[in-house]
Amino acid sequence: MTAFLRRSHRERGIDLLFVAPTLALLAGFLFYPLLYGIVLSVHDTKGFDLTSFVGLDHYAHAIFGDAVFHQALLNTVLFTAAAVVLQTGLGLILAVLVADVRRGRTFWRFAFFAPFVLASVAVGAVWKFLYAPYFGVVPTVGSAFGFNTQTFAPLADAHWALWAIMAAFLWRFVGFSMVVYLAAIQALPREYYEHAHLEGAGRFQLFRRVTWPLLWPQTFVLVLLTTLGTLRIFDMVWLMTQGGPEHATETVATDIYSTAFRFLQVGYAQAMAMILLVVILVLTLVEYRLLNRRAEAVSA
């Protein structure tokens, strides 16, 4: 018996070895940089070399004295909140619509998912054209709603810029939420619907009482993934506005990039990065706590 146990321990040890390369890679290129990042964030730097220890000065300055960082943090959280609600909501609406039609599902799915495979460099450039004053499609359509096509430039307008980027962002990523929901809707047991239908439930009632609660595990995963994916947003913002005008679209990631690579305040940039990491951890944990119980109840 003990021989068997020992053997099985050894067996399990060898099974463990198969995940070791991944762990080694993460140790070298994730956990080590994380630790080094903490060190960087409490130092002043010259170029990328440490000069003097400054304790929590960088953190204090970021939290209490840096209006641009405050703006970046606010923009990032607002943008993420809007992305979570709109991307998940629109994705669900599209999935319900596509599940409802009888023919050509592959085509509809393709149409909404296609932007997902386009590079952000291309998406950014194309949407800049679409938003261009006078020529662009968006100002032209906007003129129907009373905007002046020659002066309405959403990306150059501090009130509109962040939400103009949001539209491009949704266009690109809504297909992902739709595809996840669509797969789940198609796998839902028909009997639930037939049963509810016999009880005289209308279409909206069916959605509210059957579809929506049964899709909770998908909603849970999508909300978490969208939060994690959006709090780090860099590329689309950088490509469309570089954080301007007047920091109106500055996100924490663009702020980190400019601070480190343009202004070479490397230690300070890393302190901002560590604050972003804390925000990510806290928000993810809160969402997890709030949503997980219900998701598990449905899975069970």
Binding site: L26, L34, L228, R232, Y257, V266
Partner: peptide
């Protein structure tokens, strides 16, 4: 017990995005 612990380690890159580590990574 092993699986959960390892899964958390493997999931770490989802929670710690490269954007947060871009400065130390560049330096490294």
């Amino acid at each position: 017990p092993f699986r959960a612990a390892l899964l958390i380690l493997v999931l770490a890159p989802l929670i710690i995005p490269t954007e947060v580590l871009i400065v130390p990574l560049f330096s490294m």
